[in-house]
Amino acid sequence: NQASVVANTLIPINTALTLVMMRSEVVTPVGIPAEDIPRLVSMTVNRAVPLGTTLMPDMVKGYA
């Protein structure tokens, strides 16, 4: 099973992502692959992402 990116904290809308905000976890449904974490750093989220939420491609500006 592939690990996905999961919010390690509440990420407010329009926040630039940092490494400490994200962790990898095997979850269903599958979200952004964990190997993309380095690429996500400094990208911003377009909605509030609660703790434990899987990051989906449409949640990160410029990812999809």
Results as ranks from 00 to 15, higher is better:
residue 2 Q to G: 09
residue 3 A to D: 05
residue 4 S to K: 01
residue 5 V to Y: 02
residue 6 V to K: 03
residue 6 V to H: 00
residue 6 V to T: 08
residue 8 N to H: 08
residue 8 N to I: 06
residue 8 N to G: 09
residue 8 N to M: 10
residue 9 T to A: 13
residue 9 T to Q: 10
residue 11 I to K: 00
residue 11 I to P: 00
residue 11 I to A: 01
residue 11 I to D: 01
residue 12 P to G: 09
residue 14 N to I: 03
residue 15 T to I: 06
residue 16 A to K: 11
residue 17 L to H: 00
residue 17 L to I: 08
residue 17 L to V: 04
residue 17 L to M: 07
residue 19 L to E: 06
residue 20 V to I: 10
residue 20 V to D: 14
residue 21 M to P: 01
residue 21 M to A: 05
residue 21 M to K: 04
residue 21 M to D: 06
residue 22 M to C: 03
residue 22 M to S: 00
residue 22 M to G: 01
residue 23 R to S: 08
residue 23 R to F: 04
residue 26 V to M: 14
residue 26 V to A: 13
residue 27 V to C: 04
residue 27 V to A: 07
residue 28 T to M: 12
residue 29 P to L: 05
residue 30 V to F: 11
residue 30 V to T: 11
residue 32 I to C: 03
residue 33 P to F: 06
residue 34 A to K: 09
residue 34 A to V: 08
residue 35 E to C: 06
residue 36 D to T: 08
residue 36 D to M: 14
residue 37 I to T: 09
residue 39 R to P: 02
residue 39 R to C: 04
residue 40 L to K: 00
residue 40 L to V: 05
residue 40 L to I: 13
residue 40 L to R: 00
residue 41 V to A: 05
residue 41 V to W: 03
residue 44 T to W: 06
residue 44 T to G: 05
residue 45 V to Q: 01
residue 45 V to S: 07
residue 47 R to N: 06
residue 49 V to C: 04
residue 50 P to I: 07
residue 50 P to W: 06
residue 50 P to R: 07
residue 50 P to C: 05
residue 50 P to A: 14
residue 51 L to H: 11
residue 52 G to E: 04
residue 52 G to C: 04
residue 52 G to Y: 05
residue 52 G to R: 04
residue 53 T to D: 14
residue 53 T to L: 10
residue 55 L to D: 02
residue 55 L to E: 02
residue 56 M to Y: 12
residue 56 M to W: 07
residue 57 P to V: 05
residue 57 P to E: 07
residue 58 D to W: 11
residue 58 D to R: 08
residue 58 D to V: 11
residue 58 D to C: 05
residue 59 M to I: 05
residue 59 M to T: 06
residue 60 V to D: 02
residue 60 V to A: 00
residue 60 V to R: 01
residue 60 V to L: 07
residue 61 K to H: 13
residue 62 G to Q: 11
residue 63 Y to P: 04
residue 63 Y to H: 04
residue 63 Y to D: 03
residue 64 A to D: 06
